[in-house]
Amino acid sequence: MPENSSCSSASTCSRESCEGCPSKAKGGSGIAKEPMNKASNVKKVIGVVSGKGGVGKSFVTSSLACAMNKAGYKVGIMDADITGPSIPKMFGVHGQVYGTEDGMVPMAAENGIKIMSVNLLLDNEEDPVIWRGPVIAGVVKQFWNETVWGDIDYLFVDMPPGTGDVPLTVFQSLPVDGIVVVTSPQELVQMIVKKAYNMANMMHIPVLGVVENFSYLECPDCGKKINVFGQSHVDEAAQELGIPVFGKLPVDPAYAEKADEGKFFEIDNPYLAAGVETLKNL
């Protein structure tokens, strides 16, 4: 496959020939980045991705956002999972955003994290979003250039699974500083991680690290770690690709309870300490 499949010279493009190419200067996609909202100052954009669904991208996104918020940074979350948004409920944010002359104003969680999600645009947050790809991609762009983010140190983008319209739109349109790949312990983890890694590599987006969710269950009585979803393979995949492991997260009902209560900002997730330090040093 060509190094830059969106480049006008894609048929002859390679990693070597891409160096110095004007398309790469625009973000490796041949498409200029969308301008930031004029009333916003977002310093770092971090995408959270996976090659498949159900591995806990929203959980990892929210955990990293809360950790950076507690470290004293100004944080925002763009819920780019348009057809399956969950971020507002996790943070107890409901209702509709309002607009000003500068754009849409995101809602803030109790801890100050700013959130923009399609659920905050709907009359009823339980209504399904039945839109085709181009419309969804357009909404993601609006979440960037029509949202008044204000001063944000880290904007986390919670993406839907796979390598389709939304991840492609985010990679091409937003100035993404790096991505975090989320996976689970099953043996097919290596294929899942590689798909996300290879897409980011093709788009010239750095892969900052990988997080293994549902890594184990700790027995509340004896403390023994039980591999509910199989033996971990994330270290092997990470070593092969040359990326760090940000953390191995246990199955913990307390986290799910806080998310259901809309109080996810109250949790502490020490298992992502390595990832938090990496983000601080970007």
Rank of each mutant, 00 (worst) to 15 (best):
M191V: 13
G223C: 01
T169E: 11
V105D: 04
R15P: 12
S8T: 06
S14E: 11
K225N: 15
D165N: 01
P134D: 14
L241R: 05
G162Q: 09
P167T: 11
I136Q: 11
K57N: 01
S23E: 14
A39P: 01
V135G: 04
A109Y: 05
F264T: 05
F264S: 03
K24M: 15
A254W: 04
N111H: 07
L282S: 10
M90K: 09
C21E: 11
P220N: 06
C13M: 04
P2G: 09
P185Q: 13
V193F: 06
G28L: 05
K24Y: 14
D123Q: 13
F264N: 01
H204Q: 11
L279M: 07
D268M: 05
F156Y: 12
P134V: 03
H233C: 14
P185I: 11
L249S: 10
V245F: 08
Y197R: 05
P106E: 02
T61M: 06
V118I: 15
T147F: 07
E277Y: 07
V42L: 07
D102T: 09
S117W: 10
G20E: 00
D158C: 05
W131H: 04
S173V: 07
G99W: 00
L282C: 09
K44Y: 10
Y271A: 05
S117R: 13
A65Q: 02
C222V: 12
G51S: 07
C222W: 12
N111P: 04
A259M: 10
G138I: 12
E16C: 05
G133V: 00
F59L: 13
F59Q: 08
K280T: 07
I136C: 08
K70G: 12
L249C: 09
G133W: 00
A108D: 11
K52V: 05
C21M: 06
G262H: 05
M107A: 10
D268T: 13
I152Y: 13
E110D: 08
G47Y: 01
E277M: 05
G242I: 07
V157R: 00
A238N: 07
K89A: 13
G230E: 02
K89S: 11
E212G: 04
S184T: 14
H204W: 01
G56M: 09
K89M: 12
Y255R: 10
C18W: 09
I113E: 03
V207P: 04
N201P: 01
A67Q: 08
P2N: 10
E240C: 05
E266C: 06
E34S: 15
V129W: 06
L282R: 09
S14N: 09
A273Y: 07
A254H: 11
F91C: 02
R132S: 06
